[in-house]
Computed example of a mutant assay.
Amino acid sequence: MIRVLLVDDEALVRSGLRMILEAAGDLAVVGEARDGDEAVQAAARLRPDVILMDVRMPQRDGLSATSELARHPGAPKIIMLTTFDIDEYVHAALRAGAVGFLLKDTPPRDLAEAVRVVAAGNAMLSPTVTRRLISAFAVQSPAPGLGARARLAALTERELEVVCAVGRGLSNAEIGRELEMAEATVKAHVSRALAKLELSNRVQAAILVHEAGLA
C-alpha cells in the first residue's frame, strides 16, 4: 500500500483527491495538511511515501515546504499540484527536489497512476508535461551556462547523449529507439548520470541540459 499525504488549503480539493486515490485500492491517504507548515509536521509524523503538494497556499506555500522536506534523507516523493499549465514556482520547486507537477484537473486514473509511478522511483513526469515545462524554462533562461556545461563534463559521451535526450522530454523508451539501445540500458545510464550530477530526478537533469544550451 502506497501512503499519501494531501496538502491543499481547500478542504473540497483535499476531499476530492482523497476519494480518487482511495478508490484506486492500492493507495492510502494517511493524512491531510492545509499549508506548508502543517505539511512538514505531518510528513515527519506520518512518513508518507508520496506527497501531493499545492503550490500556492496561505501562511507557507508548497515551494518553501518542498525545499525543507527534500533536504532530509529518505524524503517522500513530492508532486506539486497547480491549477496553472505553467506556474512560476514550479521550476524552483523542481530544483528543490519535487519530482514533478500535475494539474488539478488531471483525470482520476492518471492521478492514481502518477502516484504509483513516483512511488516506484520511475519516470517523474510524462514526456508531454516535461516538454512543456522545459520549453517554458528555456524561454526564461536562454543563455548557455558555463557552470552547467562544466557539471555535464563529468559524464561519459553515452551518458551525455542520454541526458540530452532527457532534456528534450523523451521517455526511456523513446531514447532507446533513438539511440538504438534497450530501455533497461537507458534507465541505467540515466541513474548513473543523476548520481554523478548529484541530482534527484530526471527533470532536474533536463533543466541542467537547458541551462548548458545542449538540448
Rank of each mutant, 00 (worst) to 15 (best):
V115W: 02
D61S: 11
R71P: 06
A75Q: 08
S126E: 15
V129W: 05
R109V: 14
Y89N: 14
A148R: 09
P108K: 01
R71A: 11
A123F: 11
R131Y: 03
A70F: 07
S141Q: 14
I78V: 15
D105L: 01
G121W: 07
P144F: 08
A123D: 12
I79C: 01
R151E: 09
G62D: 01
I79Y: 14
L146F: 09
R60H: 05
P76G: 06
G74H: 10
F137K: 06
L152Y: 07
A75M: 11
A136M: 01
G145Y: 02
P127T: 11
L63V: 14
P142A: 00
L125D: 05
F137A: 00
E88F: 10
N122H: 15
A96N: 07
H91W: 13
D87S: 13
L133R: 03
D87H: 15
T83H: 11
M80A: 05
P142L: 00
E113L: 10
L63Y: 14
P73W: 12
V139Q: 13
T106Q: 10
P127V: 13
V99C: 13
S64F: 09
K104Y: 00
S126K: 15
L81I: 05
D61E: 02
T106Y: 09
A148P: 02
Q140M: 11
D87M: 08
A120F: 07
F137T: 08
V99N: 03
T106F: 12
L102P: 02
T66H: 01
L102I: 03
A93R: 09
T130P: 03
